[in-house]
Design a binder for these strands. Structure first.
Length: 588
DNA sequence: ATAGGGTTAG
């Protein structure tokens, strides 16, 4: 028999014990009330309130409103109080610049003094909302404070610049770190990955290993994402093999990144294989797979996967529904699309602009332009330019001049400085043979001095990504590429293809228009692929815009004439050209 | 108490 438990432990001990295992807000409120009504030593009260604040601000069971209340009730919040609230309110659903205001309050009152935790948290908070100006102010305080050499602050700074897409500044901050650990390397590689700079990301990854820092699973996620963004399959396979050889833990995040990588690199089978090996799949993993099927035009697989997700009791989120709806759109499954739209409305997921966009796309691809227009008119949120462009593309395809002109007007008043819009409107008029209106649009565009975003295509050869910009001949092997293009042009012409010159906006003669078509970036990339590789190697091209109708036709013909499989990932989906036809069945 | 990671319409 041990000693009997003390019958009346002191109140403060009981309270500290309660806080220790505080399970939810209800209990927390009770504790808080007790703290305020019982006589408790000041030091205990102080520790208790700190713990309560930490729970409210950071626990998934917490409540940020209550955290703010606790903070505001404190007449003299110390640095820890500030830090905790700064961190807490950057982790909520819709974070604002509130963390920066809190930081500013410390600075302007000159009390309490920020420490390395403060700087790391507030920089993180700025990165979450891409508050570039605010973050720069924090940075200048970091310099003055002398905390600039903390590895946490240094890494937070790299991450902040990277998230604001200030990649040069990120690199500068990274280069200034004296002791780089894997966290710092990952932050920098992640920055390159998000910008789609595969070559830079890989170079840094190699350098990291050269200086003897071991990559971990987070590093690999960033490298895998870089491969996905670039659509570089050879490198992707190498990276996957590296992960297996180095026995790097393939956790849920890395698995999901791999699924996405293979899907974005055009290897949907491999994506599926990785996906099926995930033991417990969460919403991200399911969504990634569904989206993968969608961009490959495999609607049935996408919808089956969605059913699997429901059976597995994983909760679909906004991205999941985007995948399902775009899968329906890409395959012309109108009634299925409506069905899932209903499901979306029934769920707790709030439909975003993107979901409306999918529905408009679904209807337009199925040539139900009037239905799509009515759908847009009934939208509870004001349609954005993407919605109008989608409608306009539908009008162009169906040569609906009157409806198209109405849509064009809405589009141009909403976004009068985007070259893409003028090109689209001009294409509508060209499709309807309204040549005088075509030249009017061109003039308008010229007068406003608007320049089109150039088409840009890339192809990976021997582990290096080669980029081609429309009409740009700066590649070292430009002369050889030009010769290949000339040969393609002749052979395609001999096969009876007539170029679709309406796709060219320049005020030039037909022959020049034809030449301009031949300089579309995907043609340069494909020509380079023909030059540098031999069958059965698949020519894989990534393009920043959508494939133009003429290039789509020509690529089909090339695949037949040259006996090459060509896979083009454009802005919205994959096109797999084999033996003269495309996997999209000309529906895109 | 700190820094780096996965899905996102046309």
């Amino acid at each position: 028999m041990g000693p009997p438990p003390p019958e009346n432990p002191p109140e403060e001990e009981r309270i500290l014990k309660l806080i220790q295992k505080c399970p939810n807000m209800r209990v927390l409120r009770q504790i808080h009330a007790r703290l305020l009504t019982r006589p408790i030593p000041a030091s205990t009260l102080f520790i208790s309130l700190s713990k309560l604040l930490t729970f409210c601000a950071l626990s998934s069971q917490g409540d940020i409103h209550y955290a703010r209340k606790l903070f505001n009730q404190n007449p003299d919040p110390n640095t820890f109080f500030y830090n905790t609230l700064i961190r807490g309110c950057s982790q909520i659903q819709n974070p604002s610049k509130e963390p920066f205001s809190l930081f500013n309050r410390m600075i302007s009152k000159n009390y309490p003094c920020p420490n390395t935790f403060t700087f790391a948290f507030v920089l993180k908070a700025c990165s979450v909302v891409s508050a570039f100006e605010e973050g720069k102010q924090v940075q200048s305080r970091v310099v003055k404070s002398g905390f600039g050499s903390s590895p946490f602050v240094e890494t937070a700074l790299v991450n902040f610049y990277a998230k604001c897409e200030e990649i040069q500044l990120a690199r500068k901050a990274f280069d200034e770190i004296s002791e780089r650990n894997s966290v710092a390397w990952s932050a920098m590689i992640s920055g390159y990955a998000r910008m789609g700079f595969l070559n830079e990301a890989l170079e840094l990854f190699r350098e990291m290993q050269m200086v003897g820092v071991a990559p971990d699973e987070v590093t690999m996620v960033t490298v895998v994402s870089a491969c996905a963004a670039a659509g570089a399959l050879d490198t992707a396979r190498w990276v996957h093999a590296f992960i297996e050889k180095q026995l790097i833990t393939v956790d849920l995040e890395l698995s999901t990144a791999l699924v996405n990588m293979y899907a974005k690199c055009g290897c949907i089978e491999k994506a599926k294989e990785v996906f099926e090996q995930i033991a417990v799949k969460d919403t991200y993993a399911w969504s990634s797979m569904i989206m993968g099927f969608a961009i490959h035009g495999l609607a049935e697989d996408a919808l089956e996967t969605f059913s699997g997700m429901e059976e597995a009791k994983a909760k679909p989120n906004q991205v999941t529904f985007l995948g399902v709806l775009s899968a329906c759109a890409h395959s012309g499954l109108v009634s299925a699309g409506w069905k899932y739209w209903e499901r979306l409305l029934e769920s707790n997921v709030e439909p975003l602009m993107e979901h409306y966009g999918c529905m408009v796309d679904l209807l337009c691809r199925a040539n139900r332009i009037e239905e799509a227009y009515k759908f847009v008119e009934a939208m509870p949120i004001s349609p954005n330019s993407v919605i109008w462009r989608t409608l306009l593309m539908g009008c162009r395809k169906n040569k609906m001049l009157d409806r198209g002109e109405i849509v064009a007007e809405r589009l141009l008043e909403l976004e009068p400085l985007n070259a893409e819009n003028y090109i689209l409107v001009s294409n509508l008029f060209a499709a309807c043979l309204q040549w005088s209106k075509v030249s009017l649009v061109r003039k308008k565009m010229k007068n406003k001095g608007i320049k089109a975003v150039p088409g840009c295509s890339s192809i990976e050869v021997d582990g290096f990504v080669h980029e081609f910009v429309m009409g740009c001949w700066t590649h070292p092997e430009a002369e050889d590429i030009r010769n290949v293009l000339r040969e393609i042009s002749e052979r395609v012409h001999a096969a009876g293809h007539e170029p679709w010159v309406a796709a060219v906006l320049h005020d030039v003669g037909d022959e020049e228009k034809e030449n301009a078509l031949c300089e579309h970036s995907e043609r340069l990339a494909i020509a380079f692929g023909l030059l540098k590789t031999k069958a059965p190697v698949v020519i894989r091209v990534i393009k920043n815009l959508r494939v133009c109708p003429d290039c789509h036709e020509v690529t089909k013909i090339i695949s037949k004439l040259y006996g090459r499989e060509i896979i083009v990932r454009d802005r919205v989906r994959f096109h797999k050209f084999v033996e003269g036809s495309c996997s999209c069945k000309d529906f895109w």
